[in-house]
């Protein structure tokens, strides 16, 4: 990305006849399509350029600092030399744990998919219960409030002791980390169903099941997705941490493995992967939320 932008910026620089380039920005009478395309391009540039500039500044500062302190972190240029193979070939597979980063990320994502799906289902169910029953709220909410503060890694020894196997333990840690924001936000959403919608349900004499599916669930959907979005972010945090301890294939273990091998450059490349995948996960859940709750928040 950064490289492309740089080459775009430097395009006018070659010593070609400038007349060819000049007419492009604002022709006197642009056709409507061209004007629209130009506007869209400008808007995209406005969105894409600032973060690229930030990234560039970070890389430059990092580079200068690292070059002057050879004992510290490797400079970006150093990472490129050290880990070029890892960056350029995410798909290689030499068997065992010697795989490209794509495969590590995919394995971690599969774990997240399972653990998080369980958390979503159980979390929404519990959230609806806590949100709609005062008794359930009194009975469960204090427990939830205490349990949700337990850090993900603290659950790991407990789940290992209970389940004896690495993989289910990792899944449990994801599950237990992601479930709290889902429960809490769903409960808030259920409690905040507008009085007007409740009254509509009462006047229509909807059955409890009809009320649940036709009014309560759609009205709470924006809240539920807020919870799911926080939850998916937290489960991605948990997976990396838990894999570090569990071993095998996965981004978390990859980082731990490279740390033991003192390959800091590889770790930094893996961190970029972790960040980008986490970002994509968050956007993915947000997108589904937007599609599912089409206009549910607008009156």
């Amino acid at each position: 990305m950064a490289l492309r932008a740089v080459s775009m910026d430097s395009q006018p620089a070659p010593a070609k006849p400038p007349a060819e380039i000049l007419p492009m920005p604002t022709p006197k009478r642009p056709s409507r399509l061209v004007a629209k395309l130009g506007e869209a391009a400008l808007e995209t540039l406005g969105v894409v350029v600032p973060p690229l500039v930030t990234l560039g500044v970070i890389l430059i500062v990092w580079e200068t600092l690292a070059v002057n302190m050879p004992a510290g972190l490797p400079a970006p240029s150093m990472i490129w030399t050290d880990s070029r193979q890892l960056i350029l070939h995410p798909f290689f597979d030499n068997g065992g744990v010697d795989k490209g980063l794509f495969w590590h990320a995919l394995t971690s994502l599969k774990r997240v998919a399972i653990g998080f799906s369980l958390a979503a289902v159980v979390g929404i169910a519990l959230g609806v219960l806590v949100g709609s029953s005062r008794l359930a709220h009194r009975g469960l909410d204090p427990i939830f409030q205490v349990l949700r503060t337990v850090p993900p890694l603290a659950w790991l020894p407990i789940s290992l002791a209970a389940l004896h196997q690495a993989n289910p333990s990792a899944l449990f840690v994801i599950f237990i980390t992601a479930i709290w924001p889902v429960i809490i936000n769903t409960a808030v959403g259920v409690r905040n169903v507008p009085e007007d919608y409740r009254n509509v349900g009462r006047v229509l004499r909807l059955s409890p099941i009809g009320y649940f599916f036709k009014i309560l669930l759609p009205a709470a959907t924006p809240y539920i997705f807020t919870g799911l979005r926080i939850g998916v972010g937290m489960s991605w945090l948990a997976i990396v941490a838990s894999e570090m301890l569990l071993g095998g294939v996965g981004v978390g273990f990859f980082i731990w493995d490279q740390y033991n091998a003192s390959r800091i450059s590889d770790i930094i490349v893996a961190l970029v992967w972790v960040g980008l995948v986490g970002f994509a996960l968050d956007r993915f859940v947000a997108l589904i939320g937007r599609i599912v709750s089409r206009g549910a928040s607008a009156g």
Binding site: D196, Y197, N199, V200, V203, L204, R205, K214, I215, P218, A219, T221, S293, R294, G295, A296, S297, A298, G299
Partner: peptide, 15 residues
């Protein structure tokens, strides 16, 4: 439903 109400703020279900 035999005493249907038209609410002041319409109360249509937005979804």
């Amino acid at each position: 439903p035999d005493r249907a109400v038209v609410f002041q703020n319409h109360s249509l279900l937005p979804w």
